[in-house]
Simulated assay, not measured.
Amino acid sequence: MLAMRPNCECCDRDLPPESPEARICSFECTFCADCVEDRLRGVCPNCGGGFTERPQRAARLLAKYPASTARVLKAEGCPPAQAA
């Protein structure tokens, strides 16, 4: 079952379970769409894998299977945004 982490590991943006902006890699590293596109260029800085949109858990199941509340941030930060 996905942990559904509550924030972007780069910018700490809130990513609630229903957020269409959440992106995950195969290890569930979690980032917002803006950081994935602008900073990370589609490559996970933790594992080198790609990203996909995080699935949304049905609201009726969130009470029984809640999303994680543990916030994860990259201690060394993320690379600066790339110039367009």
Rank of each mutant, 00 (worst) to 15 (best):
P17Q: 04
R57N: 05
R57S: 01
A75H: 02
N7G: 01
C78P: 08
R54P: 06
A70F: 08
L2G: 03
E28C: 10
Q56I: 12
G42L: 10
L73D: 04
V72G: 00
C10S: 14
M1W: 02
A83L: 08
C32H: 11
N46K: 15
E21I: 02
C44E: 05
S68F: 01
A75W: 01
D12L: 04
P20H: 14
T69I: 05
T52S: 07
C47L: 04
D38R: 14
D34F: 03
K74W: 03
C78G: 04
R57T: 08
L40Q: 08
C47Q: 07
A22V: 13
G48M: 10
Q82D: 02
S68P: 06
A63L: 10
C8M: 04
P17G: 06
T30A: 10
R5G: 04
F27A: 15
V43N: 00
A67M: 08
A33H: 13
F27G: 03
A70D: 11
F31H: 15
D34V: 14
F31Q: 01
G48K: 11
L15D: 09
D38C: 09
D34A: 14
E9K: 07
P80N: 03
C25D: 15
V72D: 02
L62W: 04
A84L: 09
K64I: 09
K74L: 11
E18C: 10
A83D: 07
M4H: 10
C11Q: 05
R39V: 00
T30Y: 07
A33R: 15
M1G: 10
A58R: 13
N7A: 11
V43I: 15
E21W: 07
D14A: 15
G48V: 12
C78E: 11
P66T: 07
D38N: 14
E28M: 09
C8P: 03
P45R: 15
S68G: 07
Y65G: 00
A63W: 05
Q56M: 12
E18A: 14
S19R: 12
R5L: 12
L2R: 14
A67I: 05
I24M: 13
P80A: 08
V43L: 10
T69H: 05
C10P: 01
T69W: 00
K64G: 02
G50S: 10
S26R: 12
C11G: 06
V72M: 10
R54L: 07
S26I: 14
C35W: 06
Q82M: 03
D38K: 13
A58W: 02
M1Y: 09
E28S: 13
